[in-house]
Design a protein around this nucleic acid. Sequence first.
DNA 1: TTGCCGAATTAACATGGATTAGTAGCCCGA
DNA 2: TCGGGCTACTAATCCATGTTAATTCGGCAA
Lengths: 255, 255
Amino acid sequence: MLGDLTSDFIAAPFMRRLNALVGLSDDDKSAILDSLTDARTARPRADLLRADDVIDGLSVVLEGFACRYKLLPDGRRQIVAFLVPGDFCDLRVLVVERADHAVAALAPTTTASITRDRLLSLVNTRPRLSRALWWSTLVEDAILREWLVNVGQRAAIERVSHLLCELYLRLEAVGLAADGRLELPVTQSELGDALGLSTVHINRTLRELRGQGLLETNGKSYFIRDLARLARVGIFSPDYLRVGRDLLEPRPDRY
Amino acid sequence: MLGDLTSDFIAAPFMRRLNALVGLSDDDKSAILDSLTDARTARPRADLLRADDVIDGLSVVLEGFACRYKLLPDGRRQIVAFLVPGDFCDLRVLVVERADHAVAALAPTTTASITRDRLLSLVNTRPRLSRALWWSTLVEDAILREWLVNVGQRAAIERVSHLLCELYLRLEAVGLAADGRLELPVTQSELGDALGLSTVHINRTLRELRGQGLLETNGKSYFIRDLARLARVGIFSPDYLRVGRDLLEPRPDRY
DNA sequence: TTGCCGAATTAACATGGATTAGTAGCCCGA
DNA sequence: TCGGGCTACTAATCCATGTTAATTCGGCAA
């Protein structure tokens, strides 16, 4: 377990996220908090998980920013997901022991772990917790599908806008963005790897968004001046971030 | 339930697929076969599932060919997955009631369903079946990630080659392709929607592959003349289609 | 302070793939 | 049998994005 006060504080985004859907009981909350062990902080660029690593437990991002990625043999890299505080590194540990992709920290990133056995017993005894985990994976899937749409169909300016909208909402949901302001501790080259665009073109596109008065940037601080308009440019609709949310709440006791 | 002999026959690819990983018992097999009801055949272009549809059960593709897709308001379409016999239309029915994307038949497609309640009871009483379903979703996820890599990083000829390799292996796994020959009942425009390329460019690219002696096509019949070489062109590695396979088999009783 | 290095930025140029605009083949229904 | 509507296929042209290369900026270590 982690230090109590500290852990509550650091784990706030995580709990906020789990709580958002299923309304965990206090008991559930402390059960999962007490299961978190082995907090550690990774430096930017460090791998949290390498492809083919044997996974021995579930890690949660508590602070920082990370990504899932896959490499081609010639060095091309596709980032297939961004992980923000509250996201899991490797939920599929429940079933599979080895990852097919790597996870890397992009900013200094603190994670904590739950052992596989502990996780399995939590899941078996706490249905709401189990549902919360399921929900997490489903949202991840939905995001992945939306990213495929993004990269497959949208033009550069639409892609960038869409990603900014998504990240703003996700960070806002865990209390890390507000009033249009967010910190994205990623380089333009990393944005490019996520969107299938070159660094240069990311830069051009951000300039264009700034020119249209939609965005201000200052280093890694982003200020979305008009979220509604940015969403229109990015053909962004937030539905996919709340998969089944409204439907689950009215009947939380169904399963 | 479906007619017995007929159902065994039609459901062969499905059972083959479930069986591939976890080695179901005869008992498991008949349990799931007996749960299949309501077989129906959809025509090409018919939606099997519409976005926002309330899902009342799990459908399995028994015969034919289908796709998951998402539409942008202006009509652009991204196909986010192909479903071959043995694939599930909507596994997330276990948790969520509404789909965030649609599923459409591309060829005449026969599906059968399992009611949600029946499915839940199967899952609760048959751990190996439950594992098989989990595995299915994980493979789907892995494919989705690989598609994102494909569309985000690979050039057109690589993308097309990669997809052909993937579909060949997936169809071969359920007994629907062999000796380099496969039937793809999809139009070139549909391939384009899956790969983020225009119809015209799909056509050019197929011509190029034919020109290089890698491929022969005749209508919707494809003949891969040299799978190894095609895989090299497509930077294709089949690992992602067997997520954790080798790791699960040695300890099938672990959960 | 100086020097270094990675990241941001910009400009010039190159190109892969989109778009447009056709023709031709094929199936199917009248 | 004909005609209509897809789908395959091709060529010409255009443009969004990649590539290359150089400059600037900011932080950080000596």
